[in-house]
Amino acid sequence: MEFREKIESLIGEFLQEREDLFLIDLRFSASDDITVILDGDQGVTLQDCLDASRAIEFNMDREEHDFSLQVMSAGLSEPLKSERQFRKNLGRELDILLTDDTKVEGELLKMDEKCITLVLRYRKPKDVGKGKVDVVEEKEIPYTDIKKALVTVKF
């Protein structure tokens, strides 16, 4: 089994045992620096990262193939990629960049296997007269139209 296939297999076995966790990204550099990014239905703890790291390192021979390994949780700067991540963030504000490069910001109301639904809240000019009115509308966005989705942090 090739080096990359072995790593993919080991992380796959670990995630089968820990069904509350899921893989966001697995990166290999040219110098065999491995980065594993995990997320979980209830978040990812330091112990989860240590367990995943051990599941890989204890089953690899560094004498046979030298590598470095970094296991981390998906942070706020990581875009949402999977349906599970969207489900975990129901009720939160998202900043979304669409494939046509327009931006949408709203609260994630619901999601299914094809699209997400955001609640958009904004002000627009009145149709007649001066001033603005508050608008609340729902917008469905297919996953295929999402270029990048980030959770908005408000303080």
Rank of each mutant, 00 (worst) to 15 (best):
R84S: 09
F28E: 05
I34F: 00
D66A: 13
L46W: 11
E83P: 12
R27F: 02
L76T: 12
F67H: 09
M72C: 09
L38Y: 07
P79A: 03
L26F: 02
S53Y: 04
V44F: 00
V71S: 00
A30T: 13
S29L: 02
R84G: 06
I96G: 05
A74C: 02
D100W: 07
P79T: 04
R92V: 04
E64I: 13
A30H: 11
D51K: 14
T99W: 02
L94D: 05
S53W: 03
G43M: 01
M72S: 15
V71W: 00
R87Y: 07
R27Q: 13
Q85C: 02
Q47G: 12
D51E: 14
S29N: 05
S73M: 00
G75M: 04
R54K: 14
I96S: 04
A30D: 12
E93F: 10
H65M: 11
S82H: 13
K81I: 01
L26Y: 06
C49A: 05
N59M: 03
D41C: 04
F86C: 08
C49I: 03
A55S: 15
V44M: 00
L98I: 07
I37K: 06
V36W: 00
L76N: 09
D51W: 07
A52N: 08
A55L: 03
F28P: 12
M72L: 09
K81Q: 13
L38A: 04
P79C: 04
R87C: 06
D66Y: 11
D25P: 08
S73L: 00
D48M: 01
M72G: 12
G40Q: 02
V44P: 05
I56N: 02
E57L: 06
E64D: 14
D32S: 13
R84N: 09
F86S: 08
S29M: 06
L38R: 11
N89D: 06
Q85P: 10
D33F: 09
G75N: 09
D39T: 09
G43R: 03
S29W: 04
I56H: 03
Q70S: 14
G75S: 10
A52L: 04
T45K: 07
I56V: 07
S53F: 01
D101R: 15
F67L: 06
L69P: 09
S73V: 00
D33K: 15
S82R: 14
I37V: 15
L46I: 15
R27W: 01
L98H: 07
V36A: 01
N59F: 01
S31P: 08
S82P: 10
L76A: 14
F28K: 11
H65S: 10
D61E: 13
V36M: 01
C49N: 10
P79K: 08
G91M: 05
D61P: 12
D25V: 01
H65A: 12
L80Y: 06
S53E: 06
Q47H: 14
L80T: 09
D32I: 04
F67T: 10
I96E: 03
L38E: 04
L80D: 03
Q70L: 13
R92M: 07
D32G: 06
D95H: 14
S31A: 14
R27A: 09
C49V: 05
V36E: 01
M60I: 06
